[in-house]
Simulated scan of single mutants.
Amino acid sequence: MEYVQMTLTDWLEMKKKLEADLTGVTASFIRIGYTLRRIEDERLYERDGYSSVAEFARKEYGLSASTVSRFMAINKRYSIGGYSEKLAPEYAGLGSSKLSEMLALPDSDLSMITPETPRDTIRELKDFNKQEQEGSSDLDVFLLEFFSCCVGDWKSAEPTEKSLKEALNPSGSRVYRKGKYFMAFYDADIKIKRFGAEPTSLSWGNLAEWVQEHTEELIGMIRKEKDAGSTEQGQEEEEEEVAPAQKSGKSAERLNKTPDPEEKEQGQEEEKPKDPETAEKEEIAPAQKVEKPAEILDTKPDLAENMNPPEENEAAEAEEPEKTAETLDKEPVSGEVVDREDELENLIGRLKEHVENRHWNLALFTAEKIVKRLGEKV
């Protein structure tokens, strides 16, 4: 098949046409449902000798009874006024397959569905409505459970509306369900439903305020994840250290083998003891080798850095490699002074931003960090 290069204009026109065709399919569903309802309500099927609209549609058009029922139900629920040939504006953009899936949802749940909602999400919401699950009815508890299960998604985010939206909902549609709650993320807002109750909307701005109010709990989650990561890394290093000792091979055999007298006669001499001075030099030499620099830490500001109290930062500094006496006595070069000034300017700028946004916890932590840096020897 020969492919012709498509321009941007052609591509946009193709997408527009596809959207129109899909919208047309939905509109057709509404019109077909309306026509079938009129035939039933006015008993028009009797003109051709049929006993019901289902019999009429089956013999005339090959439609099953369930298909006829679905067409009529879609028209009744989604047409203007519940009885017309036109789709109600609030359902524009939803395909016929989604509208069909939504028939099993209560009217109150329709507000949770948007054109961006995947069909699987509708099915999951239907399943959620079938049976109440165990769990707390407290919304704060539910939100804390959500943040706890996905620390890796938000730990590098700022406690702001834009940053949280990018971290928690990068694809534009996300669902989280646990216990008595079902939560659907969209670009505009967040829909939350408690089992047996009507859905509510939570704006991204309100979520950012909630994050600031629960700073202490969120910091604890980040610390817990770091501790778990450190434990796992330590176990992996232990396994790597044990592995070489399990290698027997020829080396172990040669160590355990008694030398054959004939091998000595063929020119193999016993290793002579080394001169004490030579041995001492060889032992000192490895210590003079330059060690591989410690892994550079990611300096990107994250939620933990912005909200962590100074005690955690001091603990992190204590984990740095121990400096030698030569390094401690060495005077700082000019570049280090510039870096220190840049860091202070950055912290001061961040402090102003937190004060303007009335993030008092963040402002307090940043101010303490500035005082600490000013007290250090430059």
Rank of each mutant, 00 (worst) to 15 (best):
L103W: 06
E280F: 13
Q133M: 05
K257L: 10
P301A: 12
G62F: 11
E270I: 09
P332S: 14
S136I: 05
D275S: 02
T26Y: 05
S136V: 02
A88T: 00
S108K: 12
W154G: 03
Y45I: 08
P309R: 00
E320C: 02
K226Y: 06
A20C: 07
F29S: 01
D153S: 15
Q5Y: 08
E311F: 03
T366I: 05
D140L: 09
A325H: 02
M6Q: 08
E326C: 05
L12V: 09
T7M: 04
E270M: 06
S334I: 15
P332L: 13
T67A: 15
E40R: 06
E236C: 04
S96E: 09
K76L: 14
L103P: 01
K17E: 09
E116H: 08
I190A: 00
L125A: 04
N256G: 14
R194T: 07
R47Y: 07
E134R: 05
A304E: 11
Q288A: 08
E356Y: 13
A294N: 01
A367D: 13
I284P: 03
A279W: 15
L22Q: 12
V175P: 03
N256H: 07
P301F: 08
L8K: 05
E161Q: 14
N313C: 11
P332H: 13
L144N: 02
A325W: 04
L351A: 14
E320T: 01
A279E: 15
L328E: 03
I348T: 10
S84M: 05
G24V: 01
S156K: 14
G349S: 14
R58M: 15
L94P: 01
F182Y: 13
R123P: 04
A92K: 04
D138Q: 07
A88Y: 01
E376H: 08
E283A: 13
K272D: 06
A304F: 10
S69I: 10
A252N: 00
L297A: 08
N346Y: 13
L143Q: 02
Q235W: 12
P273C: 00
T121R: 06
N129E: 09
C150P: 04
N169H: 07
Q246S: 10
S230N: 08
L202C: 04
D187R: 11
G95L: 08
W360D: 06
A188F: 01
M72S: 14
V242D: 11
T9V: 07
E46T: 10
Q235I: 15
K98I: 03
F147H: 02
Y61M: 12
E240T: 08
K17V: 02
F71G: 03
V337I: 15
V371C: 15
R31M: 07
D339Q: 12
A197F: 10
D189M: 03
V355K: 15
E60Q: 14
E132R: 09
V333Y: 11
G267H: 05
P259M: 08
K300R: 12
P293N: 00
L110T: 03
K369L: 11
T26Q: 00
R194I: 05
Q233S: 13
L351E: 13
P244S: 10
G93E: 01
G33F: 01
E253M: 02
E145C: 14
Y186N: 04
L347C: 00
L99V: 04
